[in-house]
């Protein structure tokens, strides 16, 4: 899985603080096309904050984010989605009362016609667009789990955690993004489920040829198995970078993270 060397995302000196608390303290980061980058670090080290700044939920206090040669620092969340960066959330943020299909379509927002006249009066054409999307959503869900694809119109609240994660990833993938941010996809799942989900993610990676993934993960096994490259954060700073073997051997990382954890 050797990606090309072009960096698709480049972050320079990114900083974010909440009052006196420094969440990100001058992060530099370079993500290459088609790689899976693992973002690790102890709780509160700034991983999720980095995702939130990257996706426009928080405004950065300093630094620059460049995506595909465009400066996207402090763009709105909408603009960032439109550029093809999508994400999942640490605490699953699905709409539990809505069906799987509806939840996935939330992720497809930019490709659905929002015109009032089209939606209400051109029902035949709406139906065509709708049916095309059902086929597409079903196909995507099927790559993860076939039984799930047969229950596309059941409320998400009736499914277990692993299926909800799958649905969340499908929601992030349906609009064919070029960058996917996964915020701790294995949270709240058993080891077996995690293994299964990671296999799914690798399979998706194969299917979407120019997809770059950044994954936040606590499970070292997962990081070792699926990432090409790792970055370790601690107290909002980058303390190490390299392959899993490199960072695992790094004394700073062991002190900050692995030593306490294992």
């Amino acid at each position: 899985m050797t990606g090309t060397v072009t960096p698709v995302l480049e972050i320079e000196g990114l900083a974010k603080h909440f009052g006196g608390l420094v969440a990100l303290d001058g992060i530099d980061l370079s993500v290459r096309q088609n790689e899976i980058l693992g973002l690790i670090g102890p709780n509160g080290s700034g991983k999720t904050t980095l995702f939130n700044v990257l996706t426009g939920i928080y405004l950065a206090d300093a630094g620059r984010i460049v995506f595909n040669d465009d400066d996207i620092t402090n763009n709105t969340a909408q603009a960032i989605y439109d550029r093809g960066i999508t994400r999942t959330f640490q605490r699953s943020r699905l709409c539990l009362d809505l069906s799987i299909f509806d939840n996935i379509m939330v992720g497809n927002h930019k490709r659905l016609n929002p015109d009032l006249w089209f939606n209400l009066m051109r029902r035949q054409r709406f139906r065509e667009e709708y049916e095309k999307n059902v086929v597409e959503a079903e196909l995507l869900v099927r790559t993860f789990d076939a039984p799930l694809a047969d229950r596309l119109f059941d409320a998400v609240g009736t499914f277990p955690m692993i299926d909800r994660r799958r649905i969340e990833i499908c929601r992030a993938l349906i609009s064919q993004p070029t960058m996917l941010l996964l915020d701790e996809p294995s949270a709240g799942m058993t080891d077996d489920e995690t293994t299964e989900l990671m296999a799914d993610i690798l399979e998706v990676k194969q299917r979407f040829s120019d997809l770059t993934i950044i994954i936040i993960e606590h499970e070292m096994g997962v990081i070792e198995r699926i990432t090409d490259h790792c970055v370790v954060l601690n107290f909002g700073q980058k303390i190490a970078e390299g392959s899993y073997q490199d960072i695992a051997a790094d004394p700073l990382v062991q002190e900050a993270y692995l030593g306490i954890d294992e």
Binding site: G56, I57, T86, R87, R93, C95, V106, H109
Partner: peptide, 11 residues
Amino acid sequence: LDETAAACFGY
């Protein structure tokens, strides 16, 4: 249902 998630998908 979720303004934050909706904003992240371009709403």
